[in-house]
Design a binder for these strands. Structure first.
Lengths: 347, 347
DNA sequence: CTCAAAATGAGTTGCGTACCTCAAAATACC
DNA sequence: GGTATTTTGAGGTACGCAACTCATTTTGAG
């Protein structure tokens, strides 16, 4: 009736006795220090396995003495999503300092590969781990690999660089996000047929391209009555997005759905309202911000696909910490889910 | 450009010097031990505040010696949701033992107040913290309060007992969940008018009642074209749910929406399919299980409102640990979100 | 002023690990 | 066989705090 999930309270001393060696040798094996015969290494590891020994993380942390430092390399300039991440890190400050962790924000132009690579360069000397919102570019990839080679743990945040040897990616599956957006637009439009517009920052951005891909996939296979118009590239700017969309709306009277892939939400909403069609067009966008929250409540937006920035921030810290300690990562826990937010489940 | 979010590396010794007292006195204040003049207490606390001092959690954990034990009091019998929670706790076992935490499952009949209260009785002696799936009943409330009075930390899981003095509730806001379900049914039905059916376990269960309340709220205020039929009480049983629903479907040809509040999903789906109306009726239910996953993929179910059991399990452990250590709880992190799961964002 | 009680200081021990030194033992090489 | 090299043992120190003891100082009541 009472089933125990954990027990062990062994120490290194016990392992040493078990393996018939001294504490020093166990220590050498545990930290891959040289000077131990392969056969002895095997015996020690066997003893560790056999007892499912876990070093006491508190003792290890205390013994190593120095604190751990992490850097978050993020886009400079005003970006609500990034500001939220920073805010959530701030909320963790007590948690961080109780563990003697320090997190520092490094703002840089992440959209310029050489600038970003340059910013990453010097970091390995000062930091145990780096979380970076990165562009997928050869120069950036090389900089990330250099960090990894120097022993610094690297986590990509929000936007991945899968070709690099980064230790982990903290962010959503953007193709699935696009698919969800497509399913929502299609389902919320209902039986009507008509056209669907897409506004993106740029198709050159990996995450935007992936979202559009997923969106089109669903539209093509599940909603044949809806035809998707060519993507408008608003460069995540309000003005430009507004103008492009206004023109499109004027030209097509039968637009029934709209997917806003990136930012520029303000402009998109304005174009829709100015045309007096904000209630007729199903509008799905991304992220829960003060603006999208308001639009959802007003009924202008119908749904927002969201990646929880608080979760991302905390997951990045936890993953960096686990990597630095050599602990296993709780994959389920650190996976960033795709949230569908409508008016009634606004967080 | 590089903004630090944390720094401090003060120790108790520093605080003692700052406050002009000895280490022993700081220790007395920190642990509410007697024998310190009120004025001195104030001085010490001021020094702690002034420096935003945080005791090194690793050192504290190491010094206290004994391990912490938590109990999870859960329903006996086969229950997929609870089995998932247990499975997720199992996945944490390395994490737990590295922190010298032990988690034990206590199975009991949580639906019988006196049995549940009895199971809770003896726990305070053995456990530092208890997570319990509880019924809101005076006897249970008293048992919870007794635990709290004995110094054991108590977290209610999935189902709350707000009238008790439990330290925390880990679960979703069921009214909001019902509202979300209502919004989904309403929006997915589209412009059509017609009737909406509700199948629940029992309106006597707090969570079910709250969900129905939220659902009706939204239907009444936002979807006047849909009329909600009286609730069918299927007692979370497949057979009974199927029979009740089949009869209802036969009687009303204009049912366009269906909300399944609890379990019994198998029966609900069968009634719908047998009537040949599984594609016409918008069907929204709860939780992602093997069954609902299949129904979503088949298009029988249109959406599932889900509370992530993995998140609930981990949050309960983290909250109990934070409470036991006297650490602040990261509210944002431990809040259980309401997930809207459709075919394209199935986890 | 005296004496008991309260408040405080000074110190010790131990938690389990990391990291280091030095000597001793075992092994390999010629 | 002897010497060089590798491998291992034994031990110490430090990390920051909890928890405790005991002596000393301060305070307050009579």
């Amino acid at each position: 009736m009472a089933e125990t999930l954990t027990a062990t309270a062994l120490t290194l001393k016990d392992i040493a006795r078990e393996a018939g060696v001294s504490l020093a040798t166990v220590d050498r094996v545990l930290h891959n220090r040289p000077g131990v015969r392969p056969d002895t290494v095997r015996r020690v590891k066997a003893a560790i396995e056999r007892n499912a020994f876990q070093p006491h993380v508190a003792a290890a942390e205390l013994a190593r003495g120095r604190a751990r430092r992490f850097a978050f390399v993020m886009p400079s300039g005003p970006n609500p999503f990034m500001q939220q991440i920073e805010a959530y890190l701030g909320e963790m400050s007590a948690w961080l300092s109780a563990r003697r962790l320090s997190v520092e924000m490094v703002a840089t132009d992440v959209f310029d590969p050489s600038v970003l690579a340059g910013a990453l360069e010097g970091l390995s000397a000062d930091y145990d781990g780096v979380a970076v919102v990165a562009l997928d570019h050869p120069g950036v990839r090389a900089a990330i690999n250099d960090l990894v080679d120097a022993g610094t743990k690297v986590v990509t945040l929000v936007s991945d660089v899968p070709s690099s040897r980064r230790d982990h990616y903290v962010g959503i599956d953007n193709i699935a996000a696009g698919r969800s957006a497509g399913a929502l637009v299609g389902r919320l439009v209902g039986q009507k047929s008509g056209k669907v517009a897409i506004v993106a920052g740029s198709q050159g951005l990996r995450d935007h391209a992936e979202r559009i891909f997923g969106f089109n996939q669903v539209m093509a296979s599940e909603f044949p009555d809806l035809s998707v118009l060519p993507v408008l590239e608003g460069r995540d700017e309000d003005d430009r997005s507004e103008q492009l969309l206004a023109r499109l709306l004027a030209r097509h009277a039968d637009i029934v759905g709209l997917y806003n892939v990136g930012a520029g939400t303000q402009g998109v909403a304005k174009a829709l309202s100015d045309a007096g069609r904000d209630k007729q067009v199903v509008f799905v966008g991304h992220d829960v911000t003060a603006l999208t929250r308001r639009l959802l409540l007003q009924g202008v937006m119908d749904a927002a696909i969201s990646q929880n920035p608080g979760h991302e921030a905390r997951a990045a810290v936890r993953v960096l910490l686990a990597l630095a300690r050599g602990e296993p990562i709780l994959r389920e826990q650190e996976k960033i889910r795709i949230d569908i937010v409508m008016r009634d489940n606004l967080p």
